[in-house]
Computed example of a mutant assay.
Amino acid sequence: MSTSSDQWPSSLDDVELDELDRYLRLHAGEDEDRLLLDGVHGLLSALAVGPLPVAPEVWLPQVLHDAFTDEAEANRVLALLAKLNDSILAELDMDAYEPILGEVETEQGPLVTAAGWCEGFSRGIDLYAPVWEKRLAEDAQLMELLGPVMALAVDEGVLSTEAEFEQLTDEEYDECLTELPLVLEAVRRYWQEHPPTAAERAALTQATQVDPGPPPRQRSGHWVH
Rank of each mutant, 00 (worst) to 15 (best):
M1G: 13
S2C: 04
S5N: 10
W8Y: 15
P9H: 06
S11V: 05
S11H: 12
S11D: 15
L12Q: 14
D13E: 08
D13R: 12
D14E: 15
E16R: 13
L17M: 13
L17S: 01
E19M: 08
E19K: 00
L20V: 07
D21G: 02
L26F: 06
A28R: 15
D33K: 14
D33N: 15
D33S: 14
L36E: 14
L37F: 10
D38R: 00
D38S: 09
G39K: 09
V40C: 07
H41M: 05
G42K: 12
L43S: 12
L44H: 04
S45R: 02
A48T: 15
A48L: 05
P53H: 00
W59E: 08
L64S: 08
A67T: 06
A74V: 01
N75E: 15
R76V: 06
L81H: 03
L81W: 04
L81D: 03
A82T: 11
L84H: 04
L84A: 11
N85K: 10
D86L: 11
I88G: 01
A90D: 11
A90N: 03
M94T: 08
P99S: 01
L101H: 09
T106L: 08
Q108T: 04
T113K: 11
A115C: 03
A115R: 14
A115N: 09
G116D: 15
C118D: 04
I125M: 14
Y128M: 13
V131Y: 12
E138Q: 14
Q141S: 10
L142F: 02
L142Q: 09
G147N: 08
M150Y: 11
A151D: 12
A151P: 00
V158H: 03
V158P: 00
S160T: 09
S160K: 10
T161E: 13
E162G: 12
F165W: 12
E166D: 12
L177W: 00
E179D: 13
L180A: 10
V183H: 03
V183S: 00
E185D: 13
A186S: 14
R189F: 07
E193N: 05
P195N: 09
P196D: 09
P196H: 06
E200Y: 03
R201L: 13
A203E: 15
Q206Y: 13
P214W: 12
P215H: 14
P215I: 00
R217F: 10
R217I: 02
Q218M: 07
Q218C: 00
S220Q: 13
S220I: 06
W223I: 07
V224D: 14
